[in-house]
């Protein structure tokens, strides 16, 4: 079923299936992006690594 018509239906018209696919991508895309963003650094990884001053070492901890 055609739901959008253009001057040249053969080239430009969009079927309901295509329309729904685009809608689904518009909804799922940002969600996937967000999830992948949780595992991928957004900018540069930190390079300010320095040993901390106040902590207890493994030997003094149970478990």
């Amino acid at each position: 079923m055609r739901i959008l018509q253009s001057a040249d239906p053969g080239d430009m018209a969009m079927t309901r299936k295509q329309f729904l696919k685009i809608c689904a991508l518009a909804v799922i895309g940002p969600v996937l992006g967000r999830i992948s963003g949780l595992f991928t650094p957004k900018t540069t990884p930190p390079n300010g690594i320095k040993e901390a001053r106040y902590y207890r070492s493994p030997n003094t901890l149970a478990g």
């Binding site: 930190p46 390079n47 300010g48 690594i49 320095k50 040993e51 901390a52 902590y55 070492s57």
Partner: peptide
């Protein structure tokens, strides 16, 4: 911003 690396605690933001 502080993490355990091989049993040592590190700051990840020093100078950053």
């Amino acid at each position: 911003v502080r993490t355990n690396v091989n049993g040592k605690l590190f700051s990840l933001v020093y100078g950053n």
